[in-house]
Design a protein around this nucleic acid. Structure first.
Lengths: 224, 224
DNA sequence: GATTATACTATTGTTGAAAATCATAATAAT
DNA sequence: ATTATTATGATTTTCAACAATAGTATAATC
């Protein structure tokens, strides 16, 4: 995925999509933090765009859960409550289990090989930011054979919604060793076409990620 | 739920929400059919609004799957492919099962009573349009105790996305008798706090609805 | 000190118009 | 007659300047 985009010219697609993607990345990178207002004229000037596509982008981000509109006070980066974090992980488990169920029977050798090569890179990778990207890619490879565009979209959105915190607390992310084992385990399960096994490992995988994030958010709110 | 709204004055909330809700209902009622373009200046004049909130509303509807944007050709009412219908029902089953799981332990006597009274009205109801509303209300009552705002939102969106066809083919909807039995069965399962039973009935319930819609869409596309 | 008045800031929404793109009709070429 | 090319018109997409409104902070008044 293309990280940062400086100007519109390199971007194919509408202006509002360009803005949405730019803001999405800015939120991920922590440029805009939770509860921070997104000032329209400032952003419009910064990106050299007008209000119409900008507001369209903000509505789009609202629908993705990254932004909340306060009436007459504009858009602010949303802050997930602990309950919402749990909610999102529950939904992810339900939907990603479905993706696994539908994808396992369809997966091909080529995709398994690609997944394995991604895992091998992950094992060596030190930089947590690209580690996060590779992590996403791994799961994408395994879900795509479900051939369910809408499902993949929704999973991606939910993943983004909790994943944006990753960048902030990624430095002290320690549990990556266990995470690695789980990745290999899921890949094994795919090779064996064992849906139950893949789903079961996915469950512990997501469960750990959830607990990590919950603990982090706990500290975070105490400090603040 | 408030059916049609003639003008903005009666509406609390932003203009774009008003437009979105108006268009949503118009799509449900079949005023705008699948693949039909949504002309901006026409709608803007019709509703006495300007472009900014109108486009915001269209982006919102896009995020709900009711509308698709064709580059430089504007928004058209989306047409679900058979594969997408199956996809949505799969997602609904996964998410509504989750809602059941989380709601059953929390449901109270008062809500069970309300659900039962809704079912009794449904049993007598002849008008299919209000039948559809009551049907939605019944499921809402049973899901709400999950206390998962985001989940309920997503379920609602998915329901809308297939439910809009209901209005068109509701007249010849025959399988309502079986549907009634399933409703009472789900309610029973809730009373017994039997999650598995509730989920199992839900599965056949959604499965039948899916087959109905698939068959209808089959005929529909042949005629066209 | 609490309350009201006032100025300021930002959103929200309107209006009008320019630029870009697509579909279609009209025209020219093979 | 069929294909290519070129206008034409319609519509989206975006911009820009402005009005109205609500929220916030500051100053004035009781």
């Amino acid at each position: 995925m293309n990280s940062s985009i400086s100007n519109m010219s390199k971007f194919t697609g509408s202006t509002s999509e360009f803005i949405a993607q730019t803001l999405r990345i800015a939120i991920f990178k922590g440029k805009y933090k939770a509860n921070q207002p997104l000032r329209q004229d400032r952003i419009a000037k910064e990106l050299n765009v007008s209000k119409i596509p900008l507001r369209e982008a903000l509505v789009q981000l609202k629908s993705e859960g990254l932004v909340v509109f306060l009436p007459n006070r504009g858009a602010v980066v949303s802050m997930l409550s602990p309950a919402e974090v749990r909610e999102i992980f529950s939904m992810r488990l339900a939907l990603e289990s479905l993706a696994v169920e539908k994808a396992v029977p369809n997966i091909r050798e080529a995709e398994l090989i690609r997944a394995r090569s991604v895992l091998k890179i992950i094992d060596r990778e030190k930089d947590k930011s690209t580690w996060s990207d590779l992590n996403r890619e791994f799961h994408e490879i395994l879900y795509k054979p479900s051939n369910m565009r809408l499902l993949l979209n929704t999973i991606q959105t939910l993943h983004n919604n909790v994943g944006r915190y990753l960048v902030i607390y990624l430095d002290r992310l320690s549990g990556t060793e266990a995470s690695r084992e789980e990745h290999w385990g899921i890949l094994d399960a795919y090779k064996e076409k064992n849906i139950d096994k893949a789903q079961s490992i996915l469950k512990t995988h997501l469960g750990k990620a959830e607990e990590h994030l919950m603990r982090f958010l706990g500290e975070f709110s105490e400090v603040d």
